[in-house]
């Protein structure tokens, strides 16, 4: 079970790549224009970044107990990340937190809101509704 320098190098590369993905996620959060695109930036480190960091950690730690727990964290992330992303983005789309002017195609074509419909949390920079 002695870690060779090669395994160590692989582990460190995985850790650094995962950290880099976390950095780009933060960058995307700041640079992207609306909730849906920011969501893309947010789910990326949750999947690939966490996976890479967990692989690196599992190689470095080598104790069976922690390895299994890291595997469990990775599986949890991969099961739960799409669910939370879907729920948040579905609400965002229905609440019109979407910059329609930046969109090429919108094939779902949600109807504009009726007058008097209860509207909750609208973004300050919400795009004007057509019509």
């Amino acid at each position: 079970m002695n870690a060779g320098p090669l395994a160590d190098a692989v582990a460190l590369t995985c850790l650094l790549l995962g950290s880099l993905l976390c950095l780009t996620a933060g960058l995307g959060l700041v640079r992207f224009p609306d909730v849906l695109t920011r969501m893309h930036a947010g789910t990326k480190p949750q999947v690939l970044g966490v996976l890479l960091v967990m692989i690196g950690g599992a190689i470095r730690l080598q104790g069976w107990s922690s390895t299994w727990m890291l595997l469990l964290v990775a599986v949890f992330q991969m099961l739960t990340a799409p669910i939370s992303a879907h729920m948040v983005s579905r609400v965002a789309y229905r609440r019109r937190h979407v910059r329609r002017d930046l969109m090429v195609v919108d094939e779902l074509g949600m109807a504009p809101p009726r007058a008097g419909e209860a509207r909750g949390d609208e973004p300050a920079d919400a795009a004007p509704e057509p019509g």
């Binding site: 850790l15 950290s19 959060l29 960091v53 730690l61 937190h97 973004p123 300050a124 920079d125």
Partner: peptide, 28 residues
């Protein structure tokens, strides 16, 4: 973040980055 959902996304990402940081510390 202008709206609540922007903050949700940011919090989510922040917690994931914290988790990654804990894992990096454990590994290093």
């Amino acid at each position: 973040g202008p709206s609540l959902l922007d903050r949700v996304v940011a919090t989510d990402t922040l917690l994931v980055i914290i988790a990654a940081g804990l894992a990096v510390h454990a590994a290093l």
